[in-house]
Amino acid sequence: MSNISVVNQSTTANPATGSLAGAAGTAASTTGAQIQDQFMKMLVAQMQYQDPTHPMDSSQMTSQLAQINTVDGINQLNTSMTAMSATLQTSQAYQAAGLIGKTVMAPGSSFTLSNGTASFGVQLPKGGASSVAVNILNSAGQVVDSMNLGSQGAGVIPLSWNGQDASGKTLPDGVYNLQVIANTGGAPVAANGLTASKVNAVSTAASGGAQLVLSNNTTTALSNVTQIQ
């Protein structure tokens, strides 16, 4: 705003030059009402000490008034958005609490074989893949079984495993890892492995979003859940 400066406490006017002097205040530490009040005081001072031979341009004054109203409006909008964000975060936390005790499918590479059964999945991007394979690895990183899924479209592909290796031998319960290999025309496709885990609790992330605490000792955002079982 030309010829107008926002200050923290006081404003001094120089009658000889019609200019204002003072320390500039920061909008971050000043409310919209305070900014507007200071602006009006300075505008009155400018009009009081203006040079009669060069009076203030009315269009310039109107422009300055419009600018200060815009600043005040932005401050009010920021306050409203902050309140709305807090409400949405609270609503998300309540929604996430309803999942406690349920099994969800979320991105992950490790899963638990329990009583000879395990559930996991694959998520493919738009366009799918012409060839999809899943390798199951033990704690030593050795491939114990493989699944050839062939051509698959985009979306979530739920899978299950009976806990037997490639030769049909039953493997002990425990933690295993999955490796997804997908490609189209020889080019790799970005496919995600999905693991099924029970939701034990809900926590809040530093960003304010709800986080699900899973039974596999990991946490994931509510937005990452692809399926509720």
Rank of each mutant, 00 (worst) to 15 (best):
G174P: 05
S19Y: 08
T26F: 01
A187I: 13
A201G: 09
A221Y: 02
L194S: 05
G22L: 02
Q60R: 12
I74Y: 05
Y94V: 13
Y49S: 08
G168Q: 05
S146G: 02
G185K: 07
A190E: 10
Q9W: 00
L137D: 04
Q50G: 05
M81Q: 15
L222T: 07
I136M: 01
G18N: 04
S114Q: 13
D165T: 07
P125Y: 01
V104F: 00
A24F: 07
G163E: 04
A23D: 12
A33R: 13
I157K: 05
L212T: 08
T184I: 07
A190R: 06
S91F: 02
Q46L: 15
I35A: 12
T62C: 06
Q36C: 09
Q89F: 00
A166T: 14
D145E: 09
S91H: 07
S19W: 06
S5K: 13
T79Q: 14
L149D: 03
G32T: 11
D173L: 02
V189S: 01
P172K: 02
P55Y: 03
L88Q: 13
S197K: 04
I35F: 12
G208C: 10
G185P: 07
N177C: 06
A16E: 11
S5I: 14
G121V: 00
N8D: 13
Q38W: 04
I68C: 01
S85F: 00
G25M: 03
A23L: 09
S2W: 12
T220K: 03
I68L: 05
D37C: 06
K41C: 07
G32W: 08
A106M: 10
G128Y: 01
A24L: 09
Q64R: 14
V7T: 15
Q9P: 02
